[in-house]
């Protein structure tokens, strides 16, 4: 069990050269994933998805339908795995939990005044405790980007540590909202702070801000996880969220995980995709591999 240390004792994060990162990422994208490895990779992608609905207009009906989809992705073809989790607002956790009773699909809840995080620590802790009490297995918190950009790293660190405490047994994913951090140097620094403050997972984005989970950002965060693992032997999970809607992009993300962190991270304990439309594209590709023809999107349910 890792003990959060104080921010002052953190090792410094290395600087990041954006051009170099772009080149490295381009190399991952030239990997050719064919036949067996494609089929296996697609199953893996499905099993790593956090099906997500985070809208003001979310209703119990909407959430229940999505939860059914989470463990019935494509009943027309047996042998497709379930997704890893559903991701909802705290007010929908109990509904999701009930709908998923008896399945292996986890319930994740956003918290801490998602998506802006512009609230007090008391409210954020209450928000988190409520979601956990409702039955959330995982908490997706947002960091205070305003404080981060103002240079108040201690504040960000302490806030993450206090939310981690409020999570109890729930796993904590820390959303950096990289689209608002703007530079890869900031992404790296924020990853560092989040990991040392107690994150079980680090996550790119809320899905509300563009750009979201670019491969450059995910790469930078994976390198932070790698460095932490090398220093401590502790694994941290990674969740790119937002903007990954095609199988090809998802597979290239897996390539990155494999080549940077190794096969140990290739499962939904340690890697997730936050996505809503990705699942159907993956299903379409799987059916293409199985039947030899592409089917129209009308053959895949849109819950």
């Amino acid at each position: 069990m890792k003990v959060p240390i104080s921010f002052n004792k953190l090792p410094t994060s290395p600087s990041i050269d954006k051009v170099g990162v772009e080149e490295r990422v381009a190399r991952f994208q030239t990997r050719s994933i064919k036949n067996e490895s494609k089929r296996q990779g697609l199953d893996l992608v499905l099993s790593m998805i956090d099906l997500t609905t985070l809208e003001g207009k979310d209703t119990p009906g909407k959430v229940k339908q999505m939860c059914y989809k989470a463990h019935h992705l494509h009943d027309a073809y047996a042998g497709v795995p379930n997704v890893a989790a559903v991701c909802v607002y705290p007010s929908m956790v109990r509904i999701a939990k009930t709908a998923l009773n008896g399945t292996d699909v986890k319930v994740a809840s956003v918290s801490t005044a998602f998506p802006s995080g512009q609230s007090t620590r008391e409210i954020k802790i209450t928000d988190t405790k409520f979601a956990v009490d409702e039955g959330a297995d995982e908490i997706d918190m947002v960091i205070s980007r305003g404080k981060f950009l103002a240079g108040e790293y201690n504040f960000v660190f302490d806030e993450i540590a206090s939310i981690k405490e409020a999570c109890g047994k729930a796993r904590l994913k820390v959303i950096l909202e990289t689209g608002e951090l703007c530079t890869l140097d900031n992404v790296r620094k924020a990853s560092h702070i989040a990991i040392y403050a107690g994150a079980d997972f680090i996550k790119t984005s809320t899905g509300k801000i563009q750009p979201a989970a670019t491969m450059q950002v995910t790469y930078t965060m994976l390198m932070a996880i790698k460095d932490y693992y090398d220093a401590t032997g502790i694994m941290i999970g990674m969740k790119p969220a937002g903007g990954i809607s095609t199988s090809k992009l998802a597979l290239h993300n897996l390539v990155m995980v494999k080549e940077i962190l190794g096969n140990n991270w290739l499962n939904n304990e340690w890697f997730r995709f936050g996505a809503s439309s990705l699942a159907n594209d993956v299903l379409m590709q799987i059916m293409k591999l199985e039947t030899g023809v592409y089917q129209s999107s009308d053959y895949f349910s849109i819950d």
Partner: peptide, 19 residues
């Protein structure tokens, strides 16, 4: 066919030949 359950260990995933 039973649903595939992802294990807690990583998957041994490698690239098929792509000549």
């Amino acid at each position: 066919m039973a649903k595939k359950k992802p294990g807690k260990e990583g998957v041994n995933w490698d690239y098929s030949p792509s000549l």
